[in-house]
Structures are given as C-alpha cells and as structure tokens.
Design a protein around this nucleic acid. Structure first.
Lengths: 181, 181
DNA sequence: AATATCATGTAACATGTTACATGATTGG
DNA sequence: CCAATCATGTAACATGTTACATGATATT
C-alpha cells in the first residue's frame, strides 16, 4: 500500500483558514507549518490545478482590482474534513544526527560533540522561534483556529526542550566514554 | 543543491559493525536503526552494487560452506569516516499528527482527541521497545560501539517521554477549548 | 531605471516504495 | 513435501526537489 499523499490536506487546510494566491500559500506553508510540514514549490501548483479540476478549490476575485486567489469550495471543505479524520500517517524517520552518533565509534568523540553542539544550537534557535510565533498568534484577532495552532507550537517547544536535555546528558556520556578509553 | 543521499552512510556504517548479507543488512537497518532511520529494499541492493563497484565493500566467504557476506574495505571505512564527519542533514519534516491538529477546527475536538490518543499509545509502545533494546545491548558482549548505540536509544526515550507529556497537556487544552465554545 | 518580490507554472532530475521474479535453504 | 524464511535482485511507479522560464507589480 502506497503512503497516501498529503499535499492536498496541507493545501486545503491552509485555504480553509483564508483564501490565498499560490505564492502566498507556499509562503504560509513554509513560514507557518514549517516546523512540522514542508511542501516544495513544484508540488503546490500541480496540486492546486488538480484540486481545481476536482472542484475542491476555485479562483475568486474579491474586488475588481484585487489579485485572483484560490478559495476552498464547500465540497473542498467536506473533503478536507474527511481527510483530516483519517489516522495520521507516520512519516518516514530519517535523523541524520542519530545516524551519525550511532556510528560514533567510527566518527570519534570529537565529531560526536560537534553533532550534539549543532543539535543544541538548533534547539535553542527553535525555542526562540516558537516564542515569537506564540506572541504573534496572541497578538492577532482572536480566532477559533488559534487554540489548535498553539497545540502545534507546544509540540515544537516540548520537542526542542527534550532535545536540549538529551544533548546535556549525552555530552556527559561522551566525557565518560573518553575517560574510559 | 540536492539533499545528499545518505543510504551509503547507513549501509557502510552497518557493515562497519560486522559483515552481513544484503538481507541481514535490511533486517538490521529496520530492526536496529528503525527508530531513526529507514531504507527500503529497493535502495539497499543498488547501493551495495554501487559501493562494490567503487571498491568500498567486497563480498567475502568466511568458510568454504558459509554464505557470502558483504564486508567493508579499508577504503570503505575511510569513506565512511569522511561522510560521518559531514554535518547532519536535517530531514524534511512531515508530521501528520501536527498537520491534522493544526487544522483541528475543521477536524473537531473529538477527532483531535483520537489523534492525541494514538500519539500517546505510540509513545508508550516506543518506550517499551527502547527498554527492550537497552536490555539487549547490555546483555551482549561489551563493545566500544555500545555507548554510542545507547546515545540514540536515549534520544528516543527523551522524545517519547516528551511526546507523552505534550499529549497530557494538550488533552487538558482540548477540554478548555470545548468548554469555551 | 534598477532591483526585489510577487505570481504561475514546467521540466529535468533525484529519491524512495512496492510489487514482482527467482531460486536456495530450513524446519516441521 | 510444504511452508516459511533467506537471499538477490529488477521494474514500475510514486513522490519530491531544483532550476529554469516568464512576466507583473512594487519599491527605492
């Protein structure tokens, strides 16, 4: 069984929040969903074309002089709800840091420290970003979407803090490996 | 710039621990690296063929009647060390659970609860598996590889515990969302 | 006027999965 | 002897990324 494609879920979901151009959609997916989702440029436009052919989105003009935007149709909204209710597909796991640490004997303790240092600074940077996102959301007009957005921000924060703690612990473990050799 | 392929790192790394058949290699990658890495069948054999053509692995027979195994060559080991020293590529992020929760307003609170419940039971199951792996490693002949293996197990444990805590917190948040509507 | 960004797409390429084919070996 | 698993691969397909092409609009 093929891993079901989920690009349409991301696209329809984003358009369920507000109508957008394809360009804005790509930006929103990168900037807003970025910490847990990604779609490349070459996926979004073909997906939009397909969704449009299926009658799940349509192009609309708000005013005479405004840009044409992609808007989700009632059928699109129904489709989105169906797709959202499907159990989440667990993504293919590929963690380059852990792959390298696993073979740490070949890489050497110093190399492992570098990897951990990178992981730590990335986690710290992410925590700052989450803080910024959280404040941004709270500064906006209150919306029924926000509490759900915050669940995902919280997931990112938990993960980043957990990574930071694991790094500390692992640094100490590396010290012990070194002194034991 | 293309995301550099890392199949060869996984394959050479596994063979640096001990020589194996291609079949055993696939099993090892699935069972041992499974929680942070995956390679599909159709990748492993072509990768082995390429590595062999490049002189980084070779086929060996230990005894007259034993199976032919793939063994890493000295050049292969050097290559592995070079590749391991490269900074880790951050994988494409795709978390189906967070994608769905983000659009939780469309999915509904009950659907969100189901997602979180799934995430929780998966985390609990993972913790059991990590416990088993840890005991397995400690039961084996001590090896210089083990401390590094344990770093990755620890990473998995931290992540799973962090997920479990996030689930608890998020369940309470969903209660608040429901009572506020 | 020049530059940056917005906007919509396509094509070539790279990566990754699944299903199939084929045969040997092993355990009941 | 039958089924399961070991073992090595290939081919078709699905997915995903990057670079390019093209032109409009906005900013300095």
């Amino acid at each position: 069984m093929t891993l079901k494609q989920q690009t349409d879920v991301a696209v329809l979901g984003a358009l369920s929040v507000e109508p957008m151009t394809g360009y804005a959609l790509r930006k929103a997916i990168r900037d807003v969903l970025g910490h847990f989702w990604s779609e490349s440029f070459g996926q979004i436009y073909p997906a939009l074309a397909q969704l449009r052919a299926d009658g799940l989105v349509e192009r609309t003009h708000e005013d005479a002089d405004s840009k044409s935007k992609f808007t989700i149709t009632p059928r699109g909204l129904a489709h989105l709800r169906t797709r959202l209710a499907e159990p989440a597909q667990s993504a293919r796991q590929r963690n380059g840091t852990l792959l390298r640490l696993f073979f740490g004997r070949q890489l050497g303790v110093e190399g492992c420290r570098r990897l951990l240092e990178d992981a730590r600074s990335q986690a710290v940077q992410q925590l700052e970003q989450f803080d910024a996102i959280r404040r941004e959301i709270e500064a906006e007009q209150p919306s029924a979407d926000h509490p759900f957005f915050l669940l995902t921000v919280s997931a990112g924060e938990h993960a980043a803090r957990s990574t930071a703690m694991w790094v500390e612990e692992s640094m100490r473990a590396l010290d012990r490996i070194e002194s034991a050799s």
